[in-house]
Nucleic acid binder design. Structure first.
Lengths: 156, 156
DNA sequence: AAGGTGAAAGTCAGTCAAGGTCAAGGTCAG
DNA sequence: CTGACCTTGACCTTGACTGACTTTCACCTT
């Protein structure tokens, strides 16, 4: 765990944890300077680790006095949260996005460690051995079914 | 007993024995270099001697800063039971037989209620929407992956 | 106002550094 | 001689990181 992206991620999450309203504002160039990296690496970190699937919202503004604002989405009550996640799944979903959703379920304590491991195992492309347009659709069906099962309901 | 694969195997097992947590991390290329072999030979060794049946779990990551992590699974009777079930799954499996296996996992207290519900949800033919020879094979892959995931570690 | 200027942030395709796969061929005990 | 096991390398996928180029905006200047 020693690449720059991970360090930046950790730093931002610490800032967020320390902030009262779950919202921080940074300047991209400053951050880049602090970590001795190019500014666009900040974008990379934001794009890969602070997505909606992960439970974050990122806004920004260019031009003089620009900024990047990162908000942590409120982890609200179970059902809302679950149906929200269900929406994110859609009719097809990539492995990456599925992983992010599972991670979020875990972070919100909606699933256990073991359950998260099981879910991640199932949505793996090595397991879902079918061609590509079909695989993402299949993954969506499966993820959806697993999430629904958390509600104690039968498939869609 | 002096082919390269055996040497690599012995070396890795020594490392594992020396490690405190029964877990080591290596870099594939480095290892290959140390033994003057092509990197893919490492994969061969891992695939043939560090399987779940042998009591190991291997994880890895690609890309810059990648690694291969080898974990030794604690050897208890749960594992025997699990790998036995794993055998029952085979290369393809019907929904009925899959359900029976899940039930057995539950009866043996190897999975929780929720986990069992999740597993049953996923192996449902309504979820696995593909034609019939393929569906049973897919179900086998999925069930297998889920059962295997039960062996994982807490840490991450 | 209109328009220029410079300071932000955004984009995206590309490079590099891993590890993964597979099929073809080699070796060796029986 | 043969089947099981070993070894190899060409090709693939993934993930981190980079930089040239683009877009946007506050603030001047005329």
């Amino acid at each position: 765990m020693s690449n720059v992206s991970d360090l930046i991620e950790r730093y931002l999450k610490e800032l967020l944890a320390a902030s009262t309203r779950g919202m921080i504002e940074i300047r991209r160039n400053e951050l880049a300077e602090r970590f001795n990296c190019v500014p666009s690496q900040i974008n990379y970190v934001l794009a890969t680790r602070f997505t909606v699937e992960h439970g974050f919202l990122v806004e920004s503004r260019r031009g003089g006095g620009g900024y990047v604002r990162i908000m942590q989405l409120p982890r609200d009550k179970r059902l809302d949260s679950i149906s929200q996640l269900l929406n994110l799944v859609g009719r097809e979903i990539s492995q990456q996005r599925a992983q992010a959703i599972i991670e979020r379920l875990w972070e919100e304590k909606l699933i256990t460690d073991r359950e998260s491991r099981m879910m991640r195992a199932v949505i793996d492309r090595e397991v879902l051995r079918v061609g590509l347009p079909a695989r993402d659709q299949l993954r969506a069906l499966i993820l959806r079914a697993m999430i629904l099962s958390l509600l104690g309901k039968k498939g869609e």
